[in-house]
């Protein structure tokens, strides 16, 4: 039951992500969509993946997007824009979707069962064991990928500074 409700919330929020005009509003709906997918993971018996979804997707990656939106808005009259963005109508959509998710969370706590949909829960311990025994090489590759992304992002972001005015 909560799987289908969360799936519905995810689909509605994602639909709003690709139809919103203002990037910040789309980011709001993106956060809601990712939280709904985290609930889906939880109902599927994958609490570790649900926690990572909230921490890394809804936390780190969306914050990265918000930083970029903030950097792009530097030169404009941002105060009036913020005033226009803070009307209640804009917060209503994500607010209602988040309230649905909160209601599901409270209902889960009230019913007192950890496995929502009857799926066998795959605990984080098993994931960690698999990650650092069978998949140790893959973890190394992922770390290399992250290092490459770090160096690449740093280099690309500095391109304009070094080239200066010769273009």
């Amino acid at each position: 039951m909560s799987f289908y409700l969360a799936a519905l919330v995810a689909i509605i929020a994602t639909l709003r992500v690709i139809t919103c005009r203002v990037p910040v509003h789309a980011l709001l709906y993106l956060v809601v969509s990712l939280l709904a997918v985290a609930v889906v993971f939880f109902t599927l018996g994958a609490p570790f993946a649900a926690a990572l979804e909230v921490i890394i997707y809804a936390g780190a990656i969306v914050v990265l997007f918000i930083f970029v939106v903030m950097m792009l808005n530097l030169g404009e009259a941002t105060a009036a824009q913020e005033q226009a963005w803070l009307t209640p109508g804009i917060w209503l959509g994500p607010g209602v979707l988040c309230a649905v998710l909160l209601g599901m969370l409270l209902w889960t706590f009230a019913s007192g069962s950890t496995s929502v949909a009857g799926h066998p829960v795959v605990p984080p311990r098993e994931v960690g064991l698999a990650l650092f025994t069978r998949y140790a090489l893959v973890v190394e590759l992922a770390s290399l990928l992250l290092l490459a992304a770090l160096v690449g992002a740093f280099h690309v972001a500095r391109l304009g500074e070094r080239e200066g005015g010769h273009r």
Binding site: Y57, A60, I61, A149
Partner: peptide, 10 residues
Amino acid sequence: LTLAAAEAAI
């Protein structure tokens, strides 16, 4: 997730 983070950064 790792791939998504790297892709977002670049």
